[in-house]
């Protein structure tokens, strides 16, 4: 069932490729603004790099949250999903994974290129990409709760940022400090362990909370 949902959502996303590209370009543009706004000095860029890339990834992932449920909500599919005998949490998991594949994975793939713009050394580039690989699914999972709660509300887009961004902070902290640790030559395995722990905990709890939120929003 999960596979079916993922395949369906991916197919829908592929039919509207521009949506996917918009998120990716938003990410690229935000990251490119900082050297213009702060300084093009390589020393400063190297210090900012992980933070800028991570914050931009947070914003890009958050902006695309509306798309997880709003399409299905508008055409009534979501209502049918709620009525179906399949566990809603399972459906939600599938939709969240699809959201991550569509918005998270392109960011991860793009991150090394942007890291080069910021003059990051090869090792740090690798750590940055891996930390995003572990962290972005957490963003999708936490964000799904916010997306479900604000479904169909006026001003839902701004509201979801207030709800979700404070909850993203731990991921941001450990994602960026993994990169920092690696560039100062310190051990960064622990950061990855904690990011992995966040991922596991959110996989367990988030679909369940999202399903409950959907039930409330669709009532």
């Amino acid at each position: 069932m999960i596979w079916w949902i993922i395949k369906r959502d991916l197919l829908l996303a592929m039919r509207r490729r521009s949506d996917v590209l918009t998120t990716l370009f938003f990410f690229i543009i935000v990251v490119s603004l900082f050297p213009l706004g702060v300084s093009p000095e390589p020393d400063i860029l190297r210090i900012m790099a992980s933070g800028v890339v991570w914050v931009a990834a947070l914003l890009a992932s958050m902006l695309s949250l509306g798309r997880i449920f709003s399409g299905d909500y508008a055409d009534g599919t979501l209502e049918q999903m709620l009525l179906s005998p399949v566990s809603l949490a399972e459906l939600v998991t599938g939709k969240t994974i699809a959201h991550w594949l569509v918005t998270g994975v392109p960011l991860v793939l793009m991150a090394p290129v942007l890291g080069i713009q910021y003059d990051l050394p090869g090792n740090a580039l690798l750590v940055l990409t891996l930390s995003l690989l572990l962290g972005t699914p957490v963003l999708s999972l936490i964000g799904a709760i916010g997306a479900a709660l604000t479904l169909g509300l006026r001003g839902g887009g701004v509201l979801v940022s207030i709800l979700v961004l404070p909850l993203y902070i731990p991921v941001l902290i450990f994602g960026t400090s993994a990169v920092e640790a690696s560039s100062t030559g310190m051990e960064f395995g622990a950061h990855f362990s904690i990011l992995g722990a966040f991922l596991l905990v959110s996989i367990v709890f988030s679909p369940w909370a999202t399903a409950a939120s959907l039930r409330i929003s669709m009532n």
Partner: peptide, 24 residues
């Protein structure tokens, strides 16, 4: 507070607020 303020139906506002408070 902003989530509850955005929802007009008090029942939905209560429950949605509860979820975000518990997640918090």
């Amino acid at each position: 507070m902003s989530l509850q303020a955005a929802i007009d139906d008090p029942k939905r506002a209560d429950k949605a607020g509860a979820i975000i408070a518990l997640v918090g």
